[in-house]
Every structure is written in C-alpha cells, then in structure tokens.
C-alpha cells in the first residue's frame, strides 16, 4: 500500500470516528479533535509538504461533518501541520511529556485559530471566552488520545520505517 493510500485510509477512518463514537464521548460539551490531530501528526511524521496536503483534505472533511463553511478548517489545518513539522525539526530532545504538551498546544492553537477565522468571516458570534474554553479542553482531550493515533499516523506517513536512519561504519 502506498503512503498516499495509507494516509487516505487514516483520514476516512478518522472522519468516521469523529462523526460517530468521539461525538458521543464529550467532556464539558467538547469532543476530541481527531482530524486536527491526524493533520498535526502527519506533518510531524511525513514532513511539511505531505502534512500540509493531508491537513487540507482533513480540513475539508472536518468542515463537512461539523457544518462549517467548506474551506474554513482547510485554511487552518495546513499551516498547523507545517508549523509542527518545522518545530519538530528544531527540537533537540523530546519526551512523552513534552510531546503531549506540544500536541495540547498545537490542537488548542488550531481550534482557537479556526474559531477566530469563523468570527472573521462572520459565521461565529463573538463568544471569545467560550472559544478559549473549548480550545483548551479540546487540546487536553486530544492529547489524551494522541499516543495510539500517533502510532497509526506514523505507519501511514512513513510506512513503518524509522524516521531517522543511523549510518555507521561497520567494525567487522
């Protein structure tokens, strides 16, 4: 299976999960932002260009299921995927805790940005406090489920190959 097909499969599965199971499991009225998470992780594992393209289609699918104007999340997700990819290249060390916090921050930023764009285009009312609460809560919830999703997206984006291949001169 090619990486494109694998990413497509992950996107279709994610949209089905986000529109069904995850929609039922809400905390404080907020649910997991699975498609945003997939976008961010595709940028992380697959590089900025692949991440941006996958994020664009994830955004279109997200727009369709949440009833937002088509293109709103597709405008926000690709820059988030590229930003995470760029940040990832600059990070010296990463631990599960820093990775989790990075996911939380990225999802909260993406969710907040989408609300801001919605307000800018006049499709959302100016309920800033509510949007901030939603963004933070969505970030926390999404970070909680990010570990298994990370494995799946890594498989889809890299085909299971390690991201870094260390080259050594053989002693034998």
């Amino acid at each position: 299976m090619t990486p494109r097909l694998r990413v497509l499969l992950v996107l279709v599965t994610a949209v089905a999960l986000e529109g069904t199971l995850l929609d039922e499991l809400r905390v404080g009225g907020v649910s997991v932002e699975l498609l945003l998470l997939v976008s961010i992780l595709t940028g992380y594992h697959g590089g900025p260009e692949r991440g941006a393209i996958a994020a664009f289609f994830a955004g279109l699918l997200h727009d369709s299921i949440v009833g937002a104007p088509l293109g709103l999340h597709a405008l926000v997700y690709p820059p988030m995927a590229v930003a995470v990819s760029s940040l990832e290249l600059r990070m010296l060390r990463s631990t599960p805790v820093t990775d989790g916090l990075a996911v939380l921050a990225a999802v909260a930023a993406g969710q907040g940005l989408a609300s801001a764009v919605g307000m800018l285009f006049g499709v959302l009312g100016p309920s800033t406090e509510e949007f901030v609460r939603q963004a933070i809560l969505a970030g926390i919830l999404t970070a909680v489920v990010s570990a298994p999703v990370n494995r799946v997206v890594r498989w889809a984006a890299t085909g299971g190959l390690p991201g870094t291949i260390e080259l050594r001169r053989g002693d034998a």
């Binding site: 664009f56 293109g71 709103l72 597709a74 405008l75 690709p78 590229v82 760029s86």
Partner: peptide, 18 residues
C-alpha cells in the same frame, strides 16, 4: 519538499472554497 509554495496554493484553494 516545498512547503511554502504548497502552503500558499492550499491557502488560496481554501480561501476560494470558503
């Protein structure tokens, strides 16, 4: 990888759709 031109193209597409 050409993230900048790709990103610009995608942003233009998204804005057009929007």
């Amino acid at each position: 990888d050409r993230p900048r031109p790709t990103l610009l193209l995608l942003a233009a597409a998204a804005l057009t759709l929007l």
